[in-house]
Amino acid sequence: MSNIGIIARRELSGYFRTPSGYLIAAATLLVQGLLFNTRALGGTKLSSDVLIDFLRDSSGTTTVAAVLLTMRLFAEERQSGTLVLLFTSPVREAQIVVGKFLSAFIVLSLVIAASVYLPALIFVNGKVSLGHIAAGYAGLMLVGSATLSLGVLGSALARTQLMAGVLAAVFIFVFFLAWALAQVVEPPLREVIASFSLYEKHFFPFMRGLVQLSDVVYYVSLTYLALLASTRVIQSQRWQ
C-alpha cells in the first residue's frame, strides 16, 4: 500500500471509530433536510427552481461540513503528540497532506451522496433532468474539495482544533466575499476579483446544470494550491 493510502486509511478509521465522523454527517444531513423543507419547498415553484435552491443551500452545508471534518486533521494530532510519529517516519510531507485530505474527501463524499434522496424526491414528483442533478452534485464535490483543502491548510497552521476551524472559516470567507467585492470595483479589476469567487462565479453554473471546464479548473487549482501551501507549512515547521 502506498504511503498516501496508509495515512488515508488510518484517518478514515479516526473518523469512524470516534463519534466525530457520525456526528458531522448526521448534523449536515439534518440541516440539509430542514433547509429543503423550509426553503426549497416553500411556496409554489418550478421543480428546477426547487433543485437550484436545494443545491445552493447544500453548497453551504458542504462548506461547514468540510471545515468540521478538516479542523482535526493536523491540529488534533499536534495536540496529542501523534504527529511526531508521521514526521519521524520515512513519509514525505506531501504524502501526509494528501493522505489526510483524501480521507476527509471520502467522508465528505459519503455525506454528500447520502443527501441524494432529496433531489430524488424532486425527480420523482416533479420535472427535473438527471443531468441537472448530476451536474449539481459534481459542483458540490468540487466545492467540497476546495473548502476541504482550505480546511487542511488551516489545520496545518493551527495549534488547536478551534484555531484551525477559525482559520479555515476566514480563508473560505475571503473567497466567498470575492464576489461581493467585485460588485463594488470597476472593470477590469471586477472580472479579476470575481474570478476568485468560490460560490457565485463558479458554483452557480453547476447549480443551474451547467458544467464548464473553467469552473472545474478553478476548483481543482484551488485544491492543488491549498494542499501545496499546507505541505510547505508542514515542511517549514521543522525550522521553528
Binding site: R10, S13, G14, S80, G81, T82, V84, T88
Partner: peptide, 13 residues
C-alpha cells in the same frame, strides 16, 4: 526509531 516524551499513540486504535 523515535519515542517522544509522550508516546505518539492513537487512543482509538
Amino acid at each position: 526509531g523515535y519515542l517522544p516524551d509522550t508516546p505518539p499513540v492513537y487512543l482509538e486504535m
